[in-house]
Design a protein around this nucleic acid. Sequence first.
DNA 1: CCTACCGATCGGTAGG
DNA 2: CCTACCGATCGGTAGG
Lengths: 207, 207
Amino acid sequence: MPGTENQGPVKISRKDQIETIATALFKERGFSATSMRDLASEIGIEAASIYAHVRSKEEILQSVCFKMAHEFFKELEQIEKQADTHTEKLRQLIAVHVNIITRNVAASAVFLNEWRHLSEPYASDFLQLREQYEQRLRAIVRQGIATGEFVPSDARFVTRTLLSSLNGITQWYKLDGELLPEAIAQNIGDLFLKGLMSHKDDRPKYH
Amino acid sequence: MPGTENQGPVKISRKDQIETIATALFKERGFSATSMRDLASEIGIEAASIYAHVRSKEEILQSVCFKMAHEFFKELEQIEKQADTHTEKLRQLIAVHVNIITRNVAASAVFLNEWRHLSEPYASDFLQLREQYEQRLRAIVRQGIATGEFVPSDARFVTRTLLSSLNGITQWYKLDGELLPEAIAQNIGDLFLKGLMSHKDDRPKYH
DNA sequence: CCTACCGATCGGTAGG
DNA sequence: CCTACCGATCGGTAGG
């Protein structure tokens, strides 16, 4: 079985390794400032050898960006389906968003900051996905306002500010940090739900 | 008076024009993905001509980054000086931060995202400034908590999340947008101060 | 501010 | 996965 016999107990293929290291470099230096030679030397092979596993530098970026987009959408759809309150939906969406980011800090940072180096039609496709995600998050906020669950507020502003807070995590989160992902989610959830809920019901309830 | 006789009523010098256009390109495409030829063609001159006004591509980046850092610090020091409450200090700091960003969206985005392309010792100097700014903002939050003005909370987390919300404005603010800078500041101020203040005193007071 | 140019480096290919 | 290499483009300089 050529191609499978040498993988052994560690499942990570050379292709996966390339993507992982590239993601870290793309986050640190940016896509354009990372050369295939940088990447190769980090892996320990020659630059030309990368092309045995990957068609181009951009293909790596495409893979990272669309994989992350898929992650975010998968969880969003799960949350949209359930018939919970909008408070609960928002709290859960914050929790899974924090979870995805803290489990994939580098990939999330690349997803957020390097997608503009995608060529067409990938850039347009990607942008559409991002806009749709924001729209659907905004719909939850809007509906919560419409039902009176949330205080009247600018859904567009709230959504953008929430996304900035969540996505900003990529810029400061460290695996050995003092704050656990669950605590981050709790804090962001409290902050925004406190801001969105009427005064008599300040503390969000769980079940 | 050579060098001054041709400036006429419009005060913008070629050097300023280069910096302005470069800033816009650096924001849109990133520093590394912007070539001096891109910049030149946007200005309408040859690439080599840029070097009559500017020593290098990086010098432009240095200028933008440190000018913005200076802007932010100038306002921070002003706010630290006055003997107001921490609530009022935080609200004012948010207001001036929003103001600087909305008046310099491109420069702020470059300041936030492209500084890592600075070479040494500029990168280290810059990073030190950013960390000091965050530290001093955090001190205001900490002091507000210590005096009992703010509810007990994680000052580090609050500061980072506030900065993410503020800096995120560069990613969505448009001059013709529906939300005016004053309204943005008001909303962010309300959100965070509501989150920071004790329940019996939910609405922050002004004078 | 332009023409003419330089050495370095880039992403990527051929052929093994 | 490597050696050897290609054309394109990069930041920047010389000299006017």
